[in-house]
Write a protein that binds this DNA or RNA. Structure first.
Length: 485
RNA sequence: GUCCCCAUCGUCUAGCCAGGUCCAGGACACCGGCCUUUCACGCCGGCGACACGGGUUCAAAUCCCGUUGGGGACGCCA
């Protein structure tokens, strides 16, 4: 039995007066200390899907209380990545740095109720204690030195939450089931830093309370934080949201995905020639499944997504699967859209001035062959430049003097009939091969190299049709010159 | 070290909650074949897993316990 209704109609559809079910509201709270990476993107996607599935709201919040590492360029990058993936938000972005007063007020409230206290321990002392505890094989926890000293504010002082010393906290994780932590495992965490800014734990809880978040869906690495945060909700006399912890995304070596695993930022994949829908699909299937279905449209994802189908174990991000998905999405993409996406990839190869009509015409022949936009640009190159680069190996093998007679016969055929009727041309060239007593390949390969400079390409008759009489003749002549010497 | 979590083909996973229909299904990758003017696409086939040990049961991939292995968390980062 799900703790929330299977279906909550969208905004304005249901009469609010009769709807006493709290509205589903999820959030994605990245910290702008780096680019949006795959794990974060998937967390964002799951929150987005959950909200969309239930007709609720998706809130974006930038957790920028780490004044040293937060950078505006990173918030721009994160916003761009969200946009690329099509993860639109109903609210935000909110910035924690703009809510400082509210955090201080919450901390004051806890101080007044005796649920927090000032601590004057120095970072150095704490580090020393932590190391000492580790050395003896214990869990490095704050020993509560200032807990009962009744200290007041002072330069360098911090505020700590005064947690229970006994008992335990249990929460029902929507993905993992019930999880219990003994309070003895928890120490008095800092909620206000000496620099006057709140810490993550305090800010996240206050924000989620204020923003009416109903479901906190986040990475596995936060399970340990959950009991501490639940205690904070209670210290603030607030209602608890539901928690769902999705498993980590691992690198090929099965450790937490990080920069050393290569392309881990979402936007890396834009540059690598991936389509956002392929990325979305791949991310969705990492840890979540819907029977044996592998490929999902955005709407299907929204319709089918549910936390019950999220797996409990960590998963390795498999770029081969992403690549395969990308290929399939490219195959079914509208040529016009692909043509619009291609310029940067073409430009990377020095192709900036080309015939748009030719691009559009060759795309249908190219999409079954390209797995990425980078590859697609590579396949398109011979069609878009005046004189395609000739692969030396291909020339050596197929454009020697012995090929001159064949090429001349082909040139004569093209000259006589043109390339507007590929089928007829195909028949003629097949007859030619028959007449010469050779296999079609003996004719086709030299022609292919002549036309594209490479030994592989779409069918040569298709190539001719796309190139048109003029270009075909020019390339045939060029090849003949090359073969003659 | 302590705490928490996890455990089905190389990888992503279905099946597990409601035990038998599973000598475990799909997908990616890989291998072979077909198609074929090249390269692809497509199609057909192959390889390949219930971590281990106990228990419960007529029956366990499915339930319980333990072991082992892996991951995560232990910050005035989030």
């Amino acid at each position: 039995m799900r703790p929330w209704p299977a279906r909550i109609p969208g905004k304005g559809i249901m009469d609010k007066a009769t709807d006493n079910t709290p509205r589903v509201r999820t959030r994605f709270p990245p910290s702008p200390t780096g680019a949006l990476h795959l794990g974060g993107a998937r967390t964002a996607l799951f929150n987005w899907l959950f909200a969309r599935h239930h007709g609720g709201d998706f809130v974006l919040r930038l957790e920028d209380t780490d004044r040293k590492r937060s950078k505006d360029e990173h918030v721009q990058g994160i916003l761009a990545a969200m946009d690329w993936l099509g993860l639109d938000y109903d609210e935000g972005p909110h910035y924690q740095t703009k809510r400082l007063e509210r955090y201080r007020q919450a901390i004051d409230q806890m101080l007044e109720h005796g649920r927090a206290y000032w601590c004057h321990c120095s970072p150095e002392e704490l580090t020393k204690k932590r190391e000492a505890a580790m050395a003896v094989g214990g869990k490095p926890m704050y020993d509560g030195a200032c807990r009962d000293k009744n200290l007041g504010p002072a330069p360098g002082a911090v505020v700590r939450y005064k947690g229970p010393r006994s008992g335990s906290t249990t929460f029902k994780d929507l993905v993992k089931g019930p999880i219990t932590f003994d309070h003895k495992e928890l120490d008095d965490l800092i909620i206000l830093r000496s620099d006057g800014w709140p810490t993550y734990h305090l800010a996240v809880v206050v924000d989620d309370i204020d923003m009416g978040i109903s479901h906190v869906i986040r990475g596995d690495d936060h399970v340990n934080n959950t009991p501490r945060q639940i205690l904070l909700y209670q210290a603030l006399d607030a209602e608890l949201p539901q928690f769902a912890h999705v498993p980590m995304i691992l690198g090929p070596d099965k450790t937490k995905l990080s920069k050393r695993h290569g392309a881990t930022a979402v936007m890396d994949y834009l540059d690598l020639g991936y389509l956002p829908e392929a990325m979305i699909n791949a991310l969705a299937r990492l840890g979540w499944s819907h029977g044996d279905q592998e490929k999902f449209s955005r709407q299907e994802l929204i319709d089918y997504f549910d936390l019950n189908s999220v797996g409990r174990s960590a998963a390795v991000f498999d770029t081969d699967r992403l690549l395969h998905l990308n290929q399939r999405y490219i195959q079914e993409s509208d040529p016009a859209r692909l043509a619009a996406l291609l310029p940067p990839f073409l430009a990377a190869r020095g192709i900036t001035d080309y015939d748009q009509a030719v691009l559009l015409a060759c795309l249908p022949e190219l999409t079954p062959r390209a797995k990425t936009l980078v590859e697609l640009a590579d396949w398109a190159e011979p069609f878009l430049v005046d004189e395609p680069a000739m692969d030396p190996k291909a020339v050596k093998k197929f454009l020697g003097p012995e090929r001159v007679p064949v090429l001349e016969r082909v040139r004569a055929l093209v000259e006589a009939k043109g390339v507007d009727h590929p089928q007829e041309l195909e028949q003629d060239i097949k007859s030619l091969a028959g007449e010469l007593g050779v296999k079609l390949g003996e004719v086709a390969q030299p022609v292919r190299v002549a036309l594209t400079g490479r030994t592989f390409s779409p069918g040569i008759f298709e190539v001719m049709g796309i190139l048109g009489d003029g270009r075909v003749m020019a390339r045939l002549n060029r090849a003949l010159t090359l073969a003659s010497k």
